[in-house]
Design a protein around this nucleic acid. Structure first.
Length: 590
RNA sequence: GCCCCGAUAGUCUAGUGGCCUAGGAUAGUGCCCUGUCACGGCAUUGACGCGGGUCCGAAUCCCGCUCGGGGCGCCA
């Protein structure tokens, strides 16, 4: 009987079984030899003695073997409490060495961190890294979520449909795509999809009214800890539905994932925050609401103070905004002066001229130097009560003429403080951010650009503002935020050809450019496009946050490095000029 | 394009101008061991990313490069 190593159990005691696995640890005692045999399920101890002893001594680390043997309950004093199969062992009767293995270039160990090899080495030998329990768990966890999502959408009547990987280049409006030269059509290129966006809209026009896909997407933009050039979205699109349908559908999916996979409860419906409210209260369109630290406008109070630095800004119609938080973050650790000096540096790096910080002791404001607190003496109580601050709290505030900059900088600082204090009473804080502006104004070119994508429908009542006050038009866009990270986004799509063309022109495309790039979509909208709404969850990021890890690379089998190399196969690699020229009629210039 | 951090045996690390002939752990190799479980004991092989500079003297300081990581820009 074939058994997995992790499946040794009481029922198997006395039975002869076959195990296949890798020799993880070998303990040679001279007259007896123990092997920890590992596979995807776990580790089983195999005992070699008697006639097999000599052969077993030829085993090395990571040799792949098959053994036949007798399952035995271990003597009490030899039970390994650390190992789930530690009450049992297998007395080997037959040993087949399926394959020898070279000594691994790093240790495949479960000991946390101690021997964990550098990531670039792990990625080069990813097949060895993936033998580690932690990685196995990550990959299985990801599978569970994908599987659950599939079952969920199938049950809701969605079709799992595949959109093309070789698509039309639509660089004009979005992320830089990876391009693929065409061999047949000289000088022409496909792109790899930045998202299945347009194709799923076409699926809706076709009348296949509920689509989903576990879709790969590609973006040739610089990387971050939570960004890879190719990544996976759980992507969906529906006809004849609205925002409330999608939000409650996604909420229901989240609830199921958290309950059945994480055994965590989530309170539904999720909180919804309007974009402007999120910005004003938290300085971010994806605030982390595991902690409060709300940004409070103290402009009016500060006007009465004698704090000249700030007053000068106020005289030019600037604003002052503040955050308060506890200096004490448990385990007798406290916010230090050095940390606050770092915070001031962060403030400056984000464009603020400076930042003031004070602390409250016995109901009084204190500062280093004392002069700051003195200049605020007349508004001390008003300030403390406006911020709902208490003894032991730190108050920070900053003033600036540019309200947006002020809020964004404080939003960054709020996050730094939140991450530092880290005393969260909620593990997962989900949030909808809704009512985004349809456009952003590019700070340099002053041109309009879509705040998400150019296919998002404006609010019907805002369409009249398109001509004169486009920056006030709200888009029917909603983002899903988890612990301060955008993990999903959805929108109602434009289903009117004229409006679609108009929006494309508003973001700076000439009519012929717009038709050249998106004519196939605009044309489709003329042939009976239904009401259309969709959503996508960034799967890699989602699983990473649920597992409370930092890097999405630990949840991707073969990730790329920061410089876009693929350590496992060494790609990208040069292709000989001859082939490029003959097949694609392309020439390399240097 | 820019900013910041890092690079010492196969691996993880110690190291802050002379105590370094570079220390430890683990892996490897050889020998010993019948109850270990990251077995143990004894012995042993093995390293300062590359190039330049400062200095009497550089793993250590400086410059450049390479590689890796974090961030800004970018990511509809």
């Amino acid at each position: 009987m074939d058994v997995y190593c992790g499946d040794l159990s009481a029922e198997l005691v006395g039975k002869e079984i076959t195990l296949n696995g890798w020799c993880r640890y070998i303990r040679d005692h001279g007259g007896k030899l123990f092997v920890d045999l590992a596979d995807i399920t776990g580790i089983a101890q195999v005992v070699f003695d008697g006639p097999l002893l000599e052969q077993s001594k030829t085993l090395g680390r990571e040799y792949v073997i098959r053994i036949k043997g007798l399952v035995k309950e271990r003597d009490k004093e030899t039970i390994d409490e650390e190992n789930p199969t530690g009450k049992f062992e297998v007395i080997a009767k037959e040993l087949i060495i399926i394959n020898k293995a070279e000594t691994p270039p790093f240790e495949i160990t479960e000991e946390k961190g101690k021997f964990l090899a550098a990531e670039d080495l792990r990625l080069k030998y990813r097949y060895l890294d993936l033998r580690r329990k932690e990685m196995i768990n990550n990959i299985i966890f990801r599978d569970k979520i994908t599987k659950l999502a599939r079952q969920f959408f199938w049950k809701e009547g969605f079709l799992e449909l595949e959109t093309p990987m070789l698509v039309k280049d639509t660089y004009e409006t979005g992320a830089r795509p990876f391009i693929v030269p065409s061999r047949i059509k000289k000088g022409a290129f496909y792109s790899l999809p930045q998202s299945p966006q347009i194709y799923k809209q076409l699926i809706m026009v076709a009348g296949l009214d509920k689509y989903f896909q576990v879709a790969r997407a590609f973006r040739d933009e610089d990387q971050r800890e939570d960004r890879q050039p190719e990544f996976t979205q759980i992507d969906l699109e529906v006809s004849f539905k609205d925002e409330n349908y999608i939000m409650s559908l996604i909420e229901s999916l989240i609830e199921k994932i958290l309950k059945s996979i994480m055994d965590e409860d989530v309170k539904l419906p999720l909180k919804r925050l309007q974009y402007y409210e999120a910005i004003n209260r938290y300085g971010s369109d994806k605030p982390d609401l595991r902690y409060d630290y709300e940004i409070i406008d103290i402009t009016d109070t500060m006007k009465k103070s004698n704090y000249n630095t700030v007053k000068r800004v106020l005289e030019s119609n600037g604003k002052v905004k503040a955050i308060s938080f506890s200096a004490d973050f448990g385990k007798s650790e406290r916010i230090t002066k050095d940390f606050m000096l770092d915070v001031i540096e962060i403030a400056k790096a984000n464009g603020l001229k400076g930042l003031t910080w004070l602390f409250i002791e016995n109901g009084k404001l204190k500062s280093i130097p004392e002069a700051i607190a003195s200049s605020l003496l007349n508004i001390e109580n008003e300030l403390i009560s406006a911020l709902k601050a208490k003894n032991g709290d730190i108050i920070i505030f900053a003033a600036d003429l540019d309200d947006t900059l002020l809020l964004q900088a404080l939003g960054k600082i709020r996050k730094v403080i939140g991450d530092k204090i880290g005393k969260f009473n909620i593990k997962f804080s989900f949030l909808w951010v809704v009512d985004f502006p349809l456009f952003e104004v590019d700070s340099i070119t002053k041109k309009l650009k879509p705040s998400h994508n150019p296919f998002t429908a404006p609010f019907t009542e805002d369409i009249k503002l398109l001509e004169k006050e486009p920056e006030k038009v709200r888009g029917r866009q909603f983002d899903l935020v988890l612990n301060g990270n955008e993990i999903g986004g959805g929108a109602v799509r434009i289903n009117n050809a004229d409006l679609q063309l108009k929006i494309l022109k508003m973001i700076g495309m000439k009519e012929e450019e717009a038709l050249d790039a998106f004519g196939f979509l605009i044309n489709a909208l003329k042939f009976g496009a239904p009401e259309d709404i969709g959503f996508a969850i960034g799967l890699d990021r989602f699983v990473t946050i649920l597992k409370e890890k930092q890097s999405i690379r630990d949840f991707i089998l073969f990730p790329k490095t920061k410089s876009f190399d693929s350590p496992i196969d060494g790609s990208p690699t040069k292709i000989e000029d001859k082939r490029i020229l003959e097949d694609y009629k392309l020439k390399r210039i240097e």
